[in-house]
C-alpha cells in the first residue's frame, strides 16, 4: 500500500512516502501509525504524538479507528493550515 507524508511529518521522516505491505494484525489508522513509528528513528519522531497527526484514506479525511486495507492510499499530515 502507498503511504504519503506531508509537511513536518514528511520532513521528520525524510521522505515523501513509503510503499509497504500491510502487516498482519494492523487493521486501522491507529495501528498503522504504531507500525510506521517502528520503521526508523525519523518515523518514530514523526509519530511520537499520534494525536498531533491527521490522516486520509484514499483522499478522504479519516479517524484513528477507520479501517485500512492493502490497496489503500493512506496519507499522514499535521492539522491543515490553508486559507
Amino acid at each position: 500500500m502507498q503511504i504519503l507524508y506531508f509537511a513536518w511529518v514528511r520532513e521528520k521522516i525524510g521522505r515523501a512516502g513509503d510503499d509497504i505491505a500491510l502487516p498482519p494484525g494492523v487493521t486501522d489508522i491507529a495501528g498503522l501509525m504504531r507500525h510506521l513509528a517502528a520503521l526508523s528513528p525519523g518515523h518514530a519522531a514523526a509519530f511520537a504524538n499520534p494525536t498531533a497527526i491527521r490522516a486520509a484514506i484514499n483522499q478522504d479525511f479519516a479517524r484513528p479507528e477507520d479501517a485500512v486495507t492493502n490497496g489503500d492510499e493512506v496519507a499522514f499530515f499535521p492539522p491543515v493550515t490553508g486559507g
Partner: peptide, 11 residues
C-alpha cells in the same frame, strides 16, 4: 471550511 477541511499546509 477551507481553513480546516482542505489539505494545505503553510510554512
Amino acid at each position: 471550511w477551507l481553513k480546516t477541511k482542505a489539505p494545505f499546509w503553510k510554512r
